[in-house]
Amino acid sequence: MNDNELIKKIAAKDHTAFKTLVERYQTLVISTCYSLLGNRQDAEDVAQEVFIKVYQEAKGFRGESKISTWLYRIAVNLSLNWRRKRKWDRFLDIFAFWKQEEGGNAYPFETETEDRPDRVIESKERKRILSLALDALPERQRAAITLHKYQGLSYQEIAEVLGTSLAAVESLIHRAKLNLQKKLLPLIDRI
C-alpha cells in the first residue's frame, strides 16, 4: 500500500493503516525530534504528538508534498515548540521534589580524561560537544543544519519543510556553520 492510500485510510480512522504508517516513518520522526531535542525521552514524547497530529489531520492532507516532507515539517515545528515549553518547565522544576532522573539523556557529561591517548575524542564526547554547540544556535539555524546533516535532506527539501526559500536555507546553513565554529572552538580548546 502506498503512502497516499494509507493516508486516505487513516483519514477514515483505520488503525491498521495508521500502524503501518507509524512503522514506516517512526525512525524518521524520532531521529528528527532527537536531533533537535538531544534527549531520547523528549524525542519519543514529541514523536507521539507528531503521529497524533498526523492521525487527526490526515483528512486535510492534499498530497501536494511528499508524506516525509509533511512529517518533517510537523516534527520540526513540534520539537521547536517543545524546546520553548521546556524553558517554562525548567522553572517548574524548581519544585521538583520527586524529580526523576532524566532517563536517556543523550549526552551525559563525562569528565574522564585518562583513556584518551593522542587526543582522540571518543564518540560519546564528540556527540556531546556537537550537541552543546548546536543547543546554542538560533532555532531555525539548528533546524536547517540538523535536517541537512543528520537527515541528509537537500537544501530544496529543507526549504519545503521550513516553508522558506532556497536562498534563505543557504543563508541559514551558512550562518549555522559559522556559529557552530564559534561555539565549538572553546569546547575543543578545553579538551
Partner: peptide, 8 residues
Amino acid sequence: GFTQAWQA
C-alpha cells in the same frame, strides 16, 4: 579536535 567533533 574540530575534525573529530565534526565527525559526530
